[in-house]
Design a protein around this nucleic acid. Sequence first.
RNA 1: GGAUGGGUGGCAGAGUGGUCGAUUGCACCGGUCUUGAAAACCGGCAGUCCUUCGCGGGGCUCGUGGGUUCGAAUCCCACCCCAUCCGCCA
Length: 436
Amino acid sequence: MLDIQLLRSQLDSVAARLADRGVVLDTTRFQALEAQRKELQIRTQDLQTRRNALSRQIGSLKAKGEDPAPVLAEVAGLGDALKAAEADLDALLATMNEFAAGIPNLPHESVPRGRAADDNVELRRWGTPRVFDFPVRDHVDLGAGLAGGLDFEAGARIAGARFTVMRGAVARLHRALGQFMLDVHTREHGYTEIYAPYLVNAESLFGTGQLPKFEEDLFRVPRARDGGGEGAAAPLYLIPTAEVPVTNLVRGEILAREALPLKFVCHTPCFRSEAGSYGKDTRGMIRQHQFDKVELVRIEHPDSAWAALEELTRHAETILERLELPYRRVVLCTGDMGFSAAKTYDLEVWLPAQHTYREISSCSCFDAFQARRMQARFRGERGKPELVHTLNGSGLAVGRTLVAVLENGQRADGAVVVPQALRGYMGGMEVIEPGS
RNA sequence: GGAUGGGUGGCAGAGUGGUCGAUUGCACCGGUCUUGAAAACCGGCAGUCCUUCGCGGGGCUCGUGGGUUCGAAUCCCACCCCAUCCGCCA
């Protein structure tokens, strides 16, 4: 959420910066609402002031044993007008909140302007894509050959499209990847491991910005009470990313300054409905309803947040380098960023079968945008609460990393070479043999 | 699922209809003292919103939402959450 004061004082420049994102801010509407608000709020508060003063008078008159009847009569006349004004103000403030809650974050100055993914800017490359002297197979073919290690038919039968079953060495490789990432981030990068709920409430999703605008991307779990019917409890949602439960760890908190920064790492499954991506990445496990991800989350002092984004992104890149997977870093342009982000780096891994780089991590700084929605603060230098800054990044998406390891490590015979870094997690296994 | 107790400022913990947005302690900040620190003493210290150039003035908030009342942290209703015990259970 943007600072409402900023909207009031610099509406035009806010609108201009949002325009870079391809978002049209209805400034006329905002100004109309704001004018109404001002008038209504002053009127309401004035009525409340009078009511309070008269009530206090009644109290002191009674204490002195005098007759409060005249004052009582006076205050009675206030009642209806006050109730009406309060109701109107509440409704108006709710409308304005809704308006403000739907506005995405402002891009940081360093973000390149652009309309869509084509305008993203590549910043660096690491590693050299391998040259194959045999026809490259994609992970679907490779996985099927590894004793049905990747089974999309079974996934579809059990749950539906975009679900996968892994078996044997491939399942183990998947587990190894998660363990490896967790170990590097906790042991070498100083993150605290978190285990968190996979179902969260609507407030948490509002805090990180998935709600109210993107409910259709989520899996919603209704809850019946007392056998259903009236008074059903609020629904829960399956997490689309560990960002949601982990960032919300500080929702509503006022942290001590010394407590910052908080660095968390959390390995969870992620659930996304993928509404609106029909026909996209339908083959293989690039785009699934359920996938594992190791997420890095940081709660930072505003002064350190931008340096933290660079550091966090490096932490994610470290995983790719240890796995010897060629990748590139891209900075998303204004038009391609997510709702809550002020700046985002995407890491894209080389997939030989697609002969292209594909997103495997997304690292973002949200400045105070999420913190304001969550009311996550710390006690600042002046002793007053200030909003923290939040960041997160995938370190990495485990499913896609598995795809990258399979495709990049394949041999002509359909075997897959296990990266050095993972062998300890694979019981020393160096190669996953076809049919094994 | 049943029973009981409870949700108050960063923390602990008072407060059961009228200057209570709230006693007190701890923590924190400033000062006196001290070579410095500690201790002691003095002072300050919830959040948020509106208004104002500023000084200041005002509103709202005691889990959440309703209600009663001129007036609610205090009374009533509903809900949420926490603790403990019982039942069930991986």
